[in-house]
Design a protein around this nucleic acid. Sequence first.
DNA 1: CTAAAATTGGAACCATGGTTCAAATTTTGA
DNA 2: TCAAAATTTGAACCATGGTTCCAATTTTAG
Lengths: 232, 232
Amino acid sequence: MVQILNSGSNPTSGLGSNRLSSERVRRKNEARRLEILHAAARVFRRRGLAAAGMREIADEADLSPGNLYHYFSGKDEILLFCQDRTLEHMLAAVKAACASKVPVAEQLRAVMSAHVHCMLDELEGATAHLEVEALPEPLRAPIIAKRDAYERAVRALVAQGMKRGEFAAGDASLVTRAMLGAVNWTARWYRPDGARSVTEIARSLSDYLVRGLAAAPSTRSARTAAVSGVRK
Amino acid sequence: MVQILNSGSNPTSGLGSNRLSSERVRRKNEARRLEILHAAARVFRRRGLAAAGMREIADEADLSPGNLYHYFSGKDEILLFCQDRTLEHMLAAVKAACASKVPVAEQLRAVMSAHVHCMLDELEGATAHLEVEALPEPLRAPIIAKRDAYERAVRALVAQGMKRGEFAAGDASLVTRAMLGAVNWTARWYRPDGARSVTEIARSLSDYLVRGLAAAPSTRSARTAAVSGVRK
DNA sequence: CTAAAATTGGAACCATGGTTCAAATTTTGA
DNA sequence: TCAAAATTTGAACCATGGTTCCAATTTTAG
């Protein structure tokens, strides 16, 4: 299901050039906006955030550069929406997982899997998710907050599993970041024409990441630090 | 040990404005260049690659903007050297690890640990390592090649462990990327004033990542795909 | 049908930031 | 000490790309 643009806790409520007009035109306007967002997402994906120009986004959306500003106040706002949508999806996923009654390991796998899908499936401009610093100060704060909420939720899952003894004890915070790093990184190397499907990747990856949490006692021998004697 | 700038298989050999002059001045020149690189690395770290301007880099290195171009042909070259140095270190680490006679798991931990140090320790501008696309086409190729060589080396280690039965069988390529994603991601969240030291982070992280490779039979139950029913 | 509102196009504006330039200063080598 | 080479500076140049403007066109509403 494609969620409506101005739903939930969207960070910016008043924007663009929308007067309260006929419901008919508002619908059309909203739809056009979504199209533009998808076009922008596509450009972000293939060009990278920085290299994606407004002119190219406009072109991709079959719009004149000037007209683009009729729908969005600027590049920042487009980016904001892309990131917000992605985070919204991820938050929904973690919420859904927590609500289920399966073991924590299973929940975590579900979350990681959803995260991967979020990053790689066509629809979204999830590449933008990786570059939070691109947003100007004022817009950044709400996105950061939302991202932190997501990370906190995942970390809570990890911690819960540790507490229950389902996972080995450890630094939940660190492990969470490791997991998120691994899944976020997929956007960097995934190519649609690759050998593995998104679903396969999601499955294998979440399997691996959760496996590392296993409660089995770590049988690490004395660490030979000498091996990595590369640094000065 | 700090390796000399123009050593090994550096991608660009003729650059800047270096005539063959007195050995004395050549030394000084080289030293100054390293200082500049470190200054640039610092700016990259705190501003992010895109936001780091030549003027700021020059200022950080106590140089005038114009003078900066006496040492480097441009921003691209600075970036190139930063990335090259980082990769050079990582390659050395993986080489050293492979040469040791410890179990593959131990080798991998050493590599991952070195990688983390490379990303987080002061000296390097490793943040730049994350944004390969920032380089213009001609300069990018050799860096990509080097990065791929590194990834290939790590993958070989993973595959070797799997073949020997030390690790569970699986997609070595995928797992490798997951591991690299996790360690690369550290540059995003690490803060020098955090609770954990770089060494601790390196240790915990590499422990976790290698643990997920364990040969223990995966006891995954039938996957309840319904849990992640967030996507359309 | 017609006037107002919404939409559209594309040229022009302008801030940012990488880069160049020519002259001033310092260092080098004899 | 002196001339040539190297270094340094800060202003100016210029390409890029986000943004603004306004006139032309289409759509809406009475």
